[in-house]
Amino acid sequence: MLSLIKNKFLRIPEKLHILIIAVIVMPLFIGAAIFFSGHFMTSYKIAFITDQAVSIPENEAMRINKMNEAPTASSLAMGEYNAFVETNKNGEFTVTTLNDESDKKAIQTFFETGKLPEINKTEQRGTGTNILGFVLVVALMQGVALTTFYPDDRNNATFKRILTSPAESKQYLAAQGIFTFIGLYVPTFTAIAITKIIFGAEIGFGLGTLAILLVILTSLATAFSLFMASIMNRNISLATSGISIVTCIMAGCFFSFTGDSEVLDVISNILPQKAFMAMSQTVENGASFQEFAGALSYIFLWIIVLGVAGNVVTKRKIKKGVY
């Protein structure tokens, strides 16, 4: 087993490009994402179109540019402005925005009364959970890059050769899993920890809690990549990226959403990422272990099922003479 793990590490220099991406570039992206998420502006940028001398109320949540002509509609689409506010002779305001109705009303009220009403948005997700959502997507996509030795060994017949030794396929997969886990865990944890400690970014969790949550997250990504590498023979990276992105969107890793599609709800509730996001939020809210024990067990079940399925598929292939 130790020989199998050591063998992967010895081969690292030849796969430097992938490792640089996984170990340096991706953590940089994660760090940058955390940094920028802390700088995301929550204020509205408004184009106020009027040719009259109207006094504009002031509020730090509203950045208002006064102009004579309305900017183009595409500037709303690109997000340059969140809304256009026009006024007529009677002093009535018309708000044009792509944002939802509550935002539209808030802007309207602000212009009419000078006060910004409390917006009862649905419960906001914590910073830590948002960060872990992004990390989960990156880990699921990168896991397969770190598992590349396994399909390589199959293509080069070294996997078959290893099977003629006393080492078994499950030992090989376990060794590959440990390698992938380390390759995902160490740089990710380091990146987040550095962003927190050195740059003082808010990450929503203590380092200890983060370390444990990342173990779960990375285990899931490792099991998934082993599974994908076992069932597929070619285009593993492409297929894994596609599945990861689609399922992560469905599970709400990018955006927290409440939809009205039952089918999508059912599917997304099956996904382990959804359970992870829910658990992460529960932990971030400071809940007790009992409150997320269900989600945790469910994620572990997925890790075990993916791991075992990868092993069974590999064994079946071996039995058929496909190595």
Binding site: N99, D100, E101, F254, F255
Partner: peptide
């Protein structure tokens, strides 16, 4: 993406 972000968008032009 359209589905999960539809609550962020109003009934405007887009």
């Amino acid at each position: 993406m359209g589905f999960v972000t539809q609550s962020f968008f109003g009934n405007g032009i887009m």
